[in-house]
Each structure stands twice: as structure tokens, then as C-alpha cells.
Design a protein around this nucleic acid. Sequence first.
DNA 1: CTGTGCATATTGCTTAAGAAATAGGGGGTA
DNA 2: TACCCCCTATTTCTTAAGCAATATGCACAG
Lengths: 218, 218
Amino acid sequence: MTVPPNILIADDHPLFRIALKQATKLAFNSATVDEAGAIDDMLRLMAQGPAYDLLLLDLHMPGARGFSGLIYMRGQYPEIPVVVVSGNDQDKTIAKAMNHGASGFIPKSTDLPDMAQAIKTIINGAFWVPPDFSAGHENIQDEEMSIAETVAALTPQQFRVFTLLSEGMLNKQIAYEMGVAEGTVKAHVTAILKKFGAYNRGQLIIAAQRLEADEMPE
Amino acid sequence: MTVPPNILIADDHPLFRIALKQATKLAFNSATVDEAGAIDDMLRLMAQGPAYDLLLLDLHMPGARGFSGLIYMRGQYPEIPVVVVSGNDQDKTIAKAMNHGASGFIPKSTDLPDMAQAIKTIINGAFWVPPDFSAGHENIQDEEMSIAETVAALTPQQFRVFTLLSEGMLNKQIAYEMGVAEGTVKAHVTAILKKFGAYNRGQLIIAAQRLEADEMPE
DNA sequence: CTGTGCATATTGCTTAAGAAATAGGGGGTA
DNA sequence: TACCCCCTATTTCTTAAGCAATATGCACAG
């Protein structure tokens, strides 16, 4: 790891980004911290920014709800540890995140000193989960794991198309969001279909839904 | 209720239909029992068969996994009590089934005498859940409830199209399954889109996925 | 330096999806 | 009986989805 560490915070809630940044500074007061409020910003920073030593990732990011963002980042940057940050602190959600390659899980209800400790622990190469977490026998189903492997193997543009498509958007809308021609999106969709072994976009949407995290009890 | 009662068992597993039938006979030895191994059979029997006093419904029926079958039946035949039968006996699943209008929930691990007692209880107008069930504060999200209300308001053909469409099938395939022209399916899809306030079938699939029951831990 | 492979982007073509208008068939009600 | 409403089914027409072929740029091995 670089000293001081470079850390990327990806959360759509500005106030919570501030809190996470404070926790980070508490852990490493010389840390360099970048922030992303959406998946696209995160992807851009990962590609163009410094080599990050840690990614703090919210599960409810605009552009990739659920575990797809985590899975994709683990596929693209397997050497960068990812800490999942979420308001949903059910054991099942934590277990799933860890099984999908997270190095830690920080519930949003965690207080600042514990967050700092968690960040320290993980950046040093260990895992961290909430002290009251008790893992059951919650292994990920074969089918979900197969989907995850395919998501991890998508190219950056394919992943963006996949997430937008999964929200029910038309190719034309996706093209506008990405700033490319509709035909380009279609070509990406065709490539994605092949990777998933699917015959139409509906089946892609069904697959994507299986990577969603459960609803947060409000 | 008619005496002897008419009971319909809908489960895709033949062996389990036998067990349910035995439980039914144990509860009412003169009961008339019909069986359906798929949603289509169930719908046909409901439409053409006798007036049933009770429906025993599995959550994993071919043609309607999850709660959509329960929701639709409650919308179409609100006077007929439905008992959900499932291998998934998590409290969350039971709570959801009850909130979606079930009169009872029988885990597949229940023994025969208890099943018979459950059936007796429910056919007499009361509820029945497993003795070890403890309801949390698992209310159904507004969005899911809104989807459920729309599903309950679908016509029979629309419901069949909806379930097949939700599995990622093409209009042509749905038409073949239902024995109608592709154009007819398209007209149904258009009507369904309007009811849901959706703009394309992808959004229908997303909505349908929200009514799926959690995977069964195997 | 050069060829190879992959990601990205585009166009042209075929098939699927969706909207609109229309018609037949019960099931109610005056 | 006559009327109306809703479900179902169909055809026609426009738009969207998906496939095939192709070109550019970029990284990497020789």
C-alpha cells in the first residue's frame, strides 16, 4: 500500500460521504480521499485517478443497486479491497457481500471510532465485519454465483450498459446516458447477451435482479 | 362452505400432492380433492371446476414463482381462502405470504396431523401459521404492495401473459404457450403496460421480480 | 517496429415489440 | 329483447431490439 493511502469513497449520500471521510482521516490522518456520488464517477476515478488502496462502496449507488457494483469492481480490480457500506445490516446481506468478495462490511449505524478501526484493519489486509455479525450457512446459490462471474467478466462499457439495461431503460436512453450512438449500445447488448448465454434483454434483467440486495427495512 | 368441502391442491411435486391429499382426507375424510401441477391447470380448474372451499398453493409453481399466484388468486377469488405451502419456512416468507392475503402457511416440513389441523382451522375461517413463527415488523414495502394491487387487477389472460413475460419469454413463445396469435399477446402486453404504468416489458419484469419469494436454502 | 488481440464504435439489415383500430362473445341491466 | 361493458382476439403500422460485418485505437508479445 502507498503511504499515505489513497482511498475512494462511493456513496450517493453527501452527508454520509462526509462521515466516511472523517472516519478515514481518523484512521489515517494523512490519507488522500476521493469521492464519487454515482457509479459512473467511481468508474472514472478508478480509471483515471491514483492507484487506490481501498474502496468504500455503498450498496445503493445510482447506476448499480445491489451487489453488481461490488462484483464488477472485484473482477476489474481484484487487488483493491472493497468495504461495503450499507444501511441494511442484516446478517444475510453481510454474508452475501463477504461471499461476493468484500473485505469488510460497515453498517451505516457504526460509530466513528469503530469505522476508523474497521478501515485500518482492512487496509492492512484483514477482514472486518460488525462484532454482532453471526454467519449462518448462507452460501450463495450456484446460479447467482454463475451470474456474478459473468458480471465480473464484463468490460467497463458493457457493465455500464448492463446496469442501465437492468433498470428497464431503452437502448436509445442508454445511448444518451453514455454519449454514444444507439447502434453502439446495441452492439454492447449483443455482446452481453452472448456472455450470459441469454436470448433477449428480459433474461438479462432477470439475472441482474438476482444480484440486488434486499430492501432496507426503513 | 359446502359439505363435504371441495379442496384444490396446486403443487408441481406429485409426491407432495399425495401428502397434501392425505392431510386433507385426515382433516375431512369425505373431502373432494382436485389437483393441479401447474398454474394453468389451477386456473382451468378454478374456472371450470366446482366451487372450491380451500386452495392449497405451492410458492414454486411452474408459471408463477413467488407470490404472484397468491396475489392473483386473492384478487380473482377473494372469498376462497388460500393456504401457502412452501419449503421455505423463513419467518420473512411466512409474514409476506400472510400480508399478501394468505389464510395460512404450511411449511413442507410439517407433519401430517399438524397439516390436517391447519387445514381444519383455515377451512373454518381462521388463520394458521407454524407454532414457531414469530412475526417481526416485516410490513410489505409500498412499492411492492402497489405492484401486488395491479397484479390482482389483471384479467386471467393478462395474468398468464404477465407470468410468462416475466420469465423472459418472447411474445411469439408466449403465443405458442397460450395457443393464440402473436398479435393477441402484443395486445395483452400493451394492456398490462398501461395497468402498471410502465413503458416497456423490461419494467414489467422488474416489477414481477419484486414479488418473487426468496430462494429456498437447500 | 510490427503483428495480434481486444475493447469500442459505427452502419445496414432482419426480427421483435408496442400502439391503434376493429370485431366477436358473453354477462349483466333496463 | 335490446343495450352496454369488458374480455378476448386479430390485423396493420411504427418503433425498438438484436445480428453481422467492419473500422479504429490501444496494449502487449515477438
